[in-house]
Amino acid sequence: MQLFITILIDGLTYSSYLFIVSVGLTVIFGVMKILNIAHGSFFAWGAYGAAYSIGLAANAGFPAWFGFILILLSAILVGLVLGVIIERVILRKMYDQEEVVLVLATFGIFLILEDLILLVFGVNPFFAYQPMAYLGNIKLGGISRDVYSLTLLAAAAVIAIGCWYSLNKTKWGNILATVIFDREISLAIGINVQAVYTATFVLGTALGALGGAYIAPTVSVAPGFGIDIIILSFAVVVIGGLGSIPGAVIGALMVGILRAIAVHQMPELELFVVYAVMALVLIVRPEGLFAPAVARKI
């Protein structure tokens, strides 16, 4: 029982965190058809931004709760700065290229951003434990847990509902759906597709950065932070279906819980399980578990 609860809580926390990171990836792919490797760097930049600013704030004597504001601010800042620059300067010139070439371009951006982190923040790890210490621990079913990790669940839920609501219930969501359906038609009926693309990319970037910023207080933020997470989020969005937000929820839950089971039961299978499921889903249902099947054309 104890073990079950541990696995469940670990799994859910991990799923929430994966979801926050992956949802940005899936939104960008859904709208712009870019499988963005640089997303891993957005995550890392968010984490560095949060860890660095929380450290500064703590030294300057700000209260610990201020850290939460900093987490949000660094995500928004990364989204606005990196998102706008990368979309406007680099990706905008490449929309007519093949998907695979776009993946390569984002790989180039990933490499550049990874080293910019080293140049800006150096090689030493950052710790920003203050927000986590501030919230303290709680006993759940006889197991002590830090409250901070549990807030991740709430954050993930808020983001999921927010995305779902704005896509399905708002005018902005309608515009987005039109752009996804057909870019040319959208242009023809006067939608500013460029602006939609920029906004989407900024949003996706900010969500990726938020994932990193949120996780930053629970770990040591060190170089190479984005390398593993990007492939894990690929697994999440591929399992759920590229471009699908409910898919990202399911994908994150599957990967998170499977990993928690593996970590507690057979640690040597931790990574294997995740990627084996990814491969399996691609083999059985390449469009992902949740993407609508596309009609065959000819």
Partner: peptide, 13 residues
């Protein structure tokens, strides 16, 4: 136009 991307539509599988 529905036919033209036939080659590409096989992108999935």
């Amino acid at each position: 136009t529905a036919r033209k991307p036939a080659k590409k539509s096989s992108g999935v599988r």
